[in-house]
């Protein structure tokens, strides 16, 4: 049912340009990976703090406020590089289990981080049972997204 949509994606100009270039896919992919580091680092410092480790001398709210612009930058880099990567091989992705694991977990992770975690962290100071749940859930969701993403290239 969704296949026609994926075929349309693969036929887009952007998808075709990336696919037909020798170097565009690798270079965009490399930037995608740098974005992963920025996003990963900015998520981790806050998640570690929520879990009760890492930068414990700062409050959760302060760390979250400090990390937020870089987290948003990381998300922006990931999405703006991830979309052309996807468009260039949309039909391959359609038949790829790892892609579906990633793409279905991604909106959950994004919504959880932007709505649940950010809202919680904004007013939280110290580690609590609920902060541990928020931190662990955030880490787990993004772990699935990242691992699924890497696995697209293997299957």
């Amino acid at each position: 049912m969704l296949l026609p949509f994926f075929e349309w994606c693969e036929a887009t100009t952007l998808g075709r340009v990336v696919r037909e270039s020798l170097w565009m896919f690798p270079v965009i992919e490399a930037i995608h990976l740098v974005g992963l580091c920025v996003l990963g680092g900015s998520l981790l410092v806050v998640d570690f703090r929520l879990l009760g480790t890492g930068l414990k001398d700062s409050t959760i709210a302060d760390l979250d406020r400090q990390a937020r612009p870089w987290m948003l930058l990381g998300v922006a880099v990931m999405l703006s590089t991830g979309v052309p990567l996807f468009l260039s091989e949309a039909i391959k992705c359609y038949y790829n289990t790892a892609f579906w694991v990633k793409i279905l977990t991604l909106p959950v992770a994004l919504l959880f981080t932007l709505l649940v975690k950010e809202r919680f962290a904004r007013t939280a100071t110290e580690t609590s049972t609920s902060s541990r749940w928020v931190g662990a859930t955030d880490l787990l969701l993004w772990f699935v997204v990242a691992a699924g993403g890497r696995w697209i290239g293997f299957s």
């Binding site: 992963l36 680092g41 998520l43 981790l44 410092v45 302060d62 990390a67 870089w70 990242a146």
Partner: peptide
């Protein structure tokens, strides 16, 4: 290879956050 990439996210990611602090770009309150 996947473990390599995910450990890069941990190592380079957390090192980058420390670099932002050292450069005076971010985390000034820490």
């Amino acid at each position: 290879e996947s473990t390599h990439v995910l450990s890069i996210a941990l190592f380079v990611g957390s090192a980058m956050m420390m670099d932002l602090r050292l450069m005076g770009v971010r985390f000034g309150t820490v």
